[in-house]
């Protein structure tokens, strides 16, 4: 386990191969939950939690159950059901144990079930052949990058609400233009590592 490699991996998947701006995944919550920075942070926190938990469960399930039983082809449907079940379980636990936390991010949990970023991370953990440390690093880096971009985008959108935008560009058109500019900006980080 080389810590410098893990650090490079973290920077790569947070900034350079960003899941939203480079891989173009998670566009739905990126556009839908970015009108306020508070909701963006809530969504980012919820996505981070679910992705890390789902990665741990699906990684163990694949190598301890599916692979020994020669059921590797069941990975897609298995992971979908595991992610959906995990979200239900997490929502139930948060409702019972922490009403404050539920008020902050509980409403986003059902939205994460259909978030393609979660399924992408769990599948990539297997297809890329990551060991446990790499899986954990990848599973933390992706949602951190997602949250970072979502928060930046939400702050820009908050300012756009107060700006003099032409009528035809108000709302989603200007938001998509901004997203394209952000993608261009982040592509400039390609030579960082």
């Amino acid at each position: 386990m080389d810590l410098s490699n893990l650090f490079v991996m973290f920077i790569t998947f947070t900034l350079i191969n960003n899941v939203v701006l480079n891989q173009f995944l998670g566009i739905c919550p990126f556009m839908g939950v970015s009108k306020k920075s508070s909701s963006a942070l809530g969504m980012g926190a919820a996505v981070t939690f679910v992705i890390v938990a789902a990665s741990l469960v699906t990684y163990g399930l694949y190598y301890w159950v599916l692979e020994p039983a020669d059921l590797e082809y069941m990975d897609l449907i298995t992971f979908i059901l595991v992610i959906a079940s995990l979200v239900q379980l997490v929502e139930m636990i948060i409702k019972k144990t922490s009403p404050g936390l539920y008020k902050a991010l509980g409403v986003y949990l059902p939205l994460i079930t259909t978030n393609c970023v979660v399924l992408n991370v769990t599948l990539n953990n297997i297809t890329e052949g990551y060991n446990f440390a790499e899986m954990l690093t990848y599973s933390i880096a992706i949602p951190v990058g997602f949250t970072l971009v979502l928060y930046i985008f939400s702050t820009i959108r908050e300012r756009l609400e107060l700006s003099n935008v032409p009528q035809a560009f108000k709302g989603n058109p200007i938001a998509l233009i901004v997203a394209g500019m952000m993608a261009l900006a982040f592509s400039g980080l390609a030579g960082l590592v």
Partner: peptide
């Protein structure tokens, strides 16, 4: 899990929360 989640009552003051 879906059944038990929907049987679990919502915490106080969380009955009408909606995503932005």
């Amino acid at each position: 899990l879906y059944y038990f989640n929907h049987q679990t009552p919502l915490p106080k003051d969380c009955e009408n929360i909606k995503a932005e």
